[in-house]
Design a binder for these strands. Structure first.
Lengths: 244, 244
DNA sequence: CGCTGTTTTAAACTGTCGTTTGACTTTTTG
DNA sequence: CAAAAAGTCAAACGACAGTTTAAAACAGCG
């Protein structure tokens, strides 16, 4: 299996064509997904030969993995910092998170293609799904689960917490995964730059109203009854292979 | 352009091979989507020759459209009737609708492939998207918008109503569009037959708590202020081309 | 039976995409 | 400087998918 390729799997030196290929591949994979992206288009955008991908990265999958390795999540975003700041009230953190994720999902910031690649990976998973989940999705899901726990208060089981978390991201991802249908139904329904904040406020308010209502009901129910041992149950979205 | 095909666009007589092709194509399109479905597999399942599709339906798109024409929505479902019954309280109708849509989305009933085809059409639209939206999606969206209006009460503008409606279907569709990620994150989170009702109840409760909270806030706000002319604004998800 | 129109069939055609090849050029290095 | 290694390039290969073709099989009917 020792091919002529120099360092197909390792990072290797970032020569010019390597960089150009990585940049072009990042854009094309984000725009079209792994399957619909063609090596020919990537090489054309990179100004390289068709054989360059196989030479530098082994094959198409190797290039895709290299793109995933090169992409870093956008944690320098101020919304991200606000959402992560545990000294901020949960309602404010939720709004900051919704705004942050919504921006990434809708690709309102052009210079951040990882969000698009993650979306593609959800709809049409590739062999790199496990890495994508462990590196990018699971940490964020666990964090959001903690925030939802703060909003809902005690007395909720692990799966109830998980479902509430998924209700939040479901509202956001809907606009990405169903964008063609939404656009066709009524193009004014699709978030634009001028009404983006109204969408953020709706999803935040909808979620806050829901959690407040569920919390009030749970507190009224467990007024005298014994609450389930929630603090003993593991937090949601744990890695089952990492028993930490 | 007069080909040798008998009645490529019209329905034509339902000979044996036609029926077998339609049945096989329905299954394959539902399982793999338009793009990944291959004519060769459809013909193999139908026990027909590869040229049969082009002879009977013109091309792959013609077969797809014929499948869409042959598929009818499942309005004989008891949950559908309960949801549509305007004499039933809105909260009950919402729960019935969530159960109905969830079952279609998750394909818990094997004998109803249209739901899968609709899902594929959202993620990867084909030229048949406009027909699919007008025939199947828009009527249901408008109906659900009316139900959300009942839940939210007066005083909500058209786009607020639309966003609330999309918050509901977003929660449901999430499990379909992100099934691979959810399965990988924690396979116990994916709805199964034994905890399906718990998911239905969560989405229903989450939505009911949200609408109740938003309604209470709106009623408190517009205690003395003038409410916007909501009854004059058109209902959500109207067809902009049909000014009825 | 023989003719006609319809349906079926095996095979080939066309285009695309990932990959490989072998010659050529550039860079590194002893 | 010259040999070796690394990189580039045009061209082709092999697989696959949608479509077409032309001959064969079949049906109805005088």
């Amino acid at each position: 299996m020792s091919l002529t390729t120099p360092d197909a799997l390792a990072g290797g030196p970032l020569t010019d064509t390597r960089r150009h290929l990585l940049d072009a591949a990042t854009d094309v994979f984000a725009e079209k997904g792994f399957r619909e992206a063609t090596i020919r288009e990537i090489c054309q955008r990179a100004g390289a030969n068709v054989a360059a991908v196989n030479y530098h990265f082994g094959d198409k999958e190797g290039l895709y993995e290299a793109v995933l390795t090169a992409c870093r999540n956008d944690h320098r975003n101020p919304e991200s910092h606000l959402a992560m700041d545990s000294s901020v009230p949960p309602a404010i953190r939720l709004e900051a998170y919704v705004r942050w994720m919504f921006r990434r999902v809708l690709a309102l910031d052009r210079e951040f293609p990882l969000g698009q690649i993650l979306n593609r990976e959800m709809i049409e998973p590739t062999p790199a799904l496990s890495r994508v989940v462990e590196v990018h999705i699971r940490p964020e899901a666990r964090w959001l689960g903690g925030l939802m726990s703060d909003l809902l208060g005690p007395g909720f089981a692990r799966d109830e917490l998980s479902r509430a978390t998924m209700s939040v991201v479901g509202q956001i991802l809907f606009y990405k995964h169903c964008s063609s249908v939404v656009h066709f139904l009524d193009e004014t329904l699709m978030p634009r730059r001028d009404d983006f904040e109204a969408h953020v406020r709706h999803i935040t308010d909808f979620t806050l109203a829901a959690t407040a209502g569920l919390r009030a009901r749970r507190e009224a129910q467990s007024g005298g009854a014994s609450a389930p041992a929630d603090s003993a149950s593991p937090p949601p979205f744990c890695n089952p292979n990492t028993p930490t």
